[in-house]
């Protein structure tokens, strides 16, 4: 009897080892997926309420960046254009297109367009566009070739190492208080 029970219980350690090995690989597979979720690999890029084509406005028409982002030279934030600026042209241009109809609908409802912010910095960072434009930095140094993007995406990490490397290269201040509030 005892011999029989020994025979039946023998595979258990092996089964446990197999389960442990399986669990080990499954655990790491889950960890990879979790890392992806935590770092936003699975989050689709934020889509804008209106598909604004920079390829048309900045490339084909050649509008200067500060025509729409008027705060770029004088303020901390470059700013998104007011609805009225869009409508100054689009009250009469391409009014039959679906995206322009959306724009006109915003006007009818008296609502501002809530653009998704792609270049958000942490709240403890003090960044001003004004200082960077004054330092003769071109827009594409931080934003890439926006005029080539049908839908704008972030192309720089905006992390501290990146900022510091540029400050070092340009001889700008690297004092903590320059950027940190």
């Amino acid at each position: 009897m005892s011999h029989e029970s020994q025979k039946t219980s023998a595979p258990w350690p092996k089964r446990l080892i197999r389960l442990a090995v399986l669990g080990y690989f499954v655990l790491f597979a889950l960890l990879v997926v979790a890392t992806g979720f935590l770092r936003g690999f699975f989050t689709p890029p934020a889509s804008q309420p209106i598909a604004f084509p920079h390829t048309v406005h900045a490339d084909k028409l050649g509008l200067a960046c500060d025509f729409c982002h008027s705060g770029v030279e004088q303020e901390a934030s470059a700013g998104a254009p007011a609805l009225s600026l869009c409508l100054s042209c689009h009250n009469s241009i391409a009014t039959d297109r679906p995206e322009i109809k959306k724009l006109l609908e915003y006007e009818r409802r008296g609502e501002p367009v809530r653009w998704e912010r792609l270049h958000a910095l942490p709240s403890f960072i003090h960044f001003t566009h004004q200082r960077h434009i004054q330092a003769k930095l071109t827009c594409d140094a931080c934003h890439g070739a926006v005029e080539q993007m049908a839908e704008v995406r972030r192309v720089r990490s905006l992390d501290m190492g990146w900022c510091v490397s540029c400050h070092r290269e340009k001889g700008a201040s690297r004092d903590c208080a320059t950027c940190h509030k």
Binding site: V32, V33, T35, G36, R39, G40, F41, F42, R154, V155, R156, S157
Partner: peptide
């Protein structure tokens, strides 16, 4: 996967 620059990562990579 923890160290790769976030802008280089994607669902396909994961």
């Amino acid at each position: 996967m923890a160290l790769i620059p976030a802008l280089a990562a994607s669902r396909l990579l994961s």
